[in-house]
Design a protein around this nucleic acid. Structure first.
Length: 697
RNA sequence: AGCGGGAUAGGAUAGCUCGGAGAUUCCACCAGGCUCAUGACCUGGAGAUCGGUGGUUCAAAUCCACCUCCCGCUACCA
């Protein structure tokens, strides 16, 4: 790898984080895949030899768990999603040169050879560790087969990560109070031999690596802190049937994060084998040479959630196994929907298939996702903004300029008039090309897209300023020649972002060769002397469509929310503050189902008086209350700390559901439920002289 | 609580790495133009104490400290 500007002598490979074969694709996924695709296409425009590869991640505990629940084999389960992804990406013009998966032969062999190499180099050792075990089923419970309490923050957590609390990666054996997620049985810990990769030995190398690393700043900064606070060795095996076997071990498979990134190499290799090493040589890219010099330009495009794996574990493995290190890691931000977190469980998402079913052209979404904001910033998706950007920039600026100039040229000259390109326009195109190149070298796909749009904007100014429609043909000819050249240049520059639309425009300007293959030079080559009548490139997104789509989304979210509520009641799902202004928008719809008086009678609701109120240790919002309900005093845990001063609560009368199931929150028993309204936990009370214990009806 | 991101005109967004002209662009708004072009396009205008307070500096949106507020923890997590 070099750190020279692109294009370099060495071939490049652009990869995208592997989609986990566990669910449908949505706009959040598409952000990084379109970004990777735009980047790889842009590199090719610079003349950089580039492969763009990816594959499905097939292994790991979640797939095993989900397959199990559906009663199918993990392989069948994962393959079904793999096939879906393979079909979906091209529909968004995300054109991988090779799309494999981690369970295929190439990756299995390569993974095992790399692991052997890690062993040979002396970086792997065996250690007995405590593994969660289901004593009744007599089976090990790796990763997400177990849940319990995070040893760091005390929150409820999964076996592999504290998902609800501090977000820390948890090593096997760390979680406290383990319970099997499959059977609900309390788990016990058993000693089992596992293999560890000595990442701790590599912190010096990794620090240097981060200094050299290009891409987004978050990918450099976040891991520095992890290194400084000391790297732990990494457990690379699991007691699981599903995965790549640990070489020479019957019972162990490799942790999926070992074989997942290796798929980047495997997929490159498959591509190389398909087209021939003369065309593209995977070893030249990935292998270090004898002198330790390497290799190709490896660029990873990922979501920011998997930075750790790509900047610590992955380069550590590559280094020890003798492969070349990545040149750049580009980590995108998340996608929000209408300003709120995308949530698959709440169905607040725009699904890939849904977008296509609505009949929108994929290039519109590509444009939105890749040019909306900073690469590592979170990106908000809304149909309103989508409409604004499509109508304003793609239709108004780009499409309109292309159409008006080509139509003018066609009508008056039957193609490009015979005239010289003006120096002004040539310089302006050069500037756009330079901007584009600079953007690619900064891994800024947004700026690359902007270069094209700004050039089209210039084109509109230029044609307006010269008013060719007021000139006779001789006078108009040079102006139109300039405009057609601009149109051609715009087409070349917008190809990475809107490949399909560029193809259509390219045919209109009578471009030779293939617009996907041409380099930036093509922006200066003379357009065809004769071409056909052009057609409009982009269509407006109508207001009615936007309204309709907004309604659809809102309805869907509301439906999912109301369905959720019943079983979600005990989880502390509420955020600290409700946005007061939004309350009306946010009101849950009334339930349609009526209940009978008997159902109501099933609720034993009593007036109570708070005797004491104490915070629950380690919990943020929970308070432990002693509530006098006449016949007895109940201990109740309530999530009310955000609005209430606990010292002021004793003496307050409350309304309490007395026959609520008992629950244990943060190790504290809760025997009843204090009623409160809203996110702020506005407590229900009585206003007259109802005594504690009085039944509410 | 933790981790991460953010606060720039009515809304959205850039600039911040590496401090220096009038703070970018898009939408909306006002006035004009044009009519080749798709409710398009072009020109001009109004609109920002760059979250707050201190500090460093000749100079701060940009660097430092403290504070306030917002957002996300969703895919991914394997």
């Amino acid at each position: 790898m070099s750190h020279d500007d692109f294009p370099t002598e060495q071939p490049a490979v652009v990869t995208c984080g592997l989609p986990y074969a566990n669910g449908d694709l949505h706009v959040g996924h598409l952000r990084s895949y379109t970004a990777g695709d735009v980047l790889s296409r842009s590199l090719r425009k610079l003349g950089q030899q580039t492969a763009f590869v990816c594959g499905s991640d097939m292994h790991g505990t979640p797939i095993a768990v989900n397959a199990d629940e559906q009663g199918v084999s993990p392989e069948a389960f994962a393959t079904q999603y793999h096939e879906q992804y393979e079909e979906t990406f091209p529909q968004f013009n995300v054109q991988f040169d090779n799309y494999g998966h981690t369970h295929d032969e190439t990756n299995t062999e390569l993974t095992q050879s790399i692991v052997r190499r890690l062993e040979d180099e002396g970086y792997v050792y065996e250690k007995e560790i405590k593994v969660a075990w289901d004593p009744i089923e007599d089976q090990p419970l790796p990763d997400r087969y177990v849940e319990g309490t995070c040893p760091y923050c005390g929150e409820h957590a999964r076996g592999d990560e504290c998902d609800e609390g501090c977000g820390r990666h948890l090593e096997p054996g760390e979680i406290e109070d383990p319970v099997s997620t499959r059977t609900g049985n309390p788990a016990e810990y058993r000693e089992r031999p596992h293999r560890f990769f000595e990442v701790s030995e590599l912190s010096e190398y990794l620090s240097g690596f981060l200094d050299r690393l290009e891409g987004t700043s978050n990918a450099r900064n976040q891991p520095r802190e992890w290194i400084e606070s000391g790297l732990e060795d990494w457990c690379i095996t699991r007691d699981l049937d599903w995965g790549i076997d640990y070489p020479g071990e019957e019972d162990l498979v490799l942790y999926v994060w070992v074989d997942a990134p290796i798929e980047y190499i495997s997929s490159t290799k498959q591509y190389s084998e398909r087209v021939g090493a003369d065309e593209y040589d995977w070893e030249q890219v990935w292998r270090e040479t004898e002198s330790g010099e390497a290799g190709g330009e490896v660029v990873h495009v990922i979501g920011r959630d998997i930075i750790q794996h790509h900047t610590i574990f992955w380069p550590a493995m590559l280094e020890v196994a003798g492969y070349s290190e990545p040149r750049a890691v580009c980590a995108t931000g998340f996608v929000t929907i209408n300003g709120k977190g995308l949530s698959t469980s709440r169905n607040r998402a725009i699904w890939a298939q849904e977008y296509l079913d609505e009949g929108f052209h994929p290039d519109l979404l590509r444009y939105y996702l890749t040019t909306m904001g900073g690469f590592q910033q979170d990106l908000d998706f809304s149909w309103d903004r989508f409409q604004e950007r499509v109508n304003g920039e793609l239709v108004g600026t780009v499409g309109n300029f292309l159409y008006r100039s080509l139509l003018f040229a066609y009508r008056n000259f039957g193609g490009t008039p015979d005239a010289e390109l003006s120096p002004e326009v040539e310089e302006r195109i050069q500037q756009a090309v330079d901007d584009f190149s600079a953007a690619v070298n900064e891994y800024e796909v947004r700026k690359a897209g902007d270069a094209a749009v700004k050039l089209a904007q210039f084109g509109n100014e230029y044609i307006q300023r010269n008013e060719p429609w007021k000139l006779d043909d001789d006078e108009a000819a040079p102006v139109i020649r300039d405009c057609v050249q601009l149109a051609k240049a715009v087409t070349v520059l917008i190809e990475p972002v809107a490949p399909d639309k560029a193809e259509a425009a390219w045919a209109q300007v009578g471009g030779e060769a293939d617009v996907h293959d041409v380099t930036l030079d093509a922006a200066f080559e003379p357009p065809a002397a004769a071409f056909d009548e052009p057609a409009e490139l982009f269509e407006q997104v109508e207001d009615e469509r936007v309204e309709e789509l907004n309604e659809k989304l809102a309805e869907r979210v509301a439906e999912t929310a109301s369905g959720d509520d019943t079983d979600d009641g005990t989880e502390s799902d509420e955020s600290t503050d409700a946005d007061e202004a939004d309350v009306t928008d946010e009101l849950e719809p009334l339930l349609e189902d009526r209940i009978g008086f008997d159902d109501f009678e099933a609720l034993d609701i009593r007036v109570g008086r708070i005797e004491t109120a104490d915070p629950v240790e380690d919990a943020d919002k929970l308070a432990k209350l002693e509530v006098d309900i006449g016949v007895e005093t109940r201990q109740v845990v309530a999530g009310i700390r955000q609005l209430h001063d606990l010292d002021a609560l004793p003496g307050t009368k409350v309304v309490l559901l007395a026959n609520m199931e008992k629950a244990e929150l943060f190790g504290v028993e809760s025997n009843g439920m204090v009623l409160a309204a809203g996110e702020q936990a506005d407590l229900l009370t009585t206003h007259d002289d109802a005594e504690p214990g009085t039944k509410v009806r």
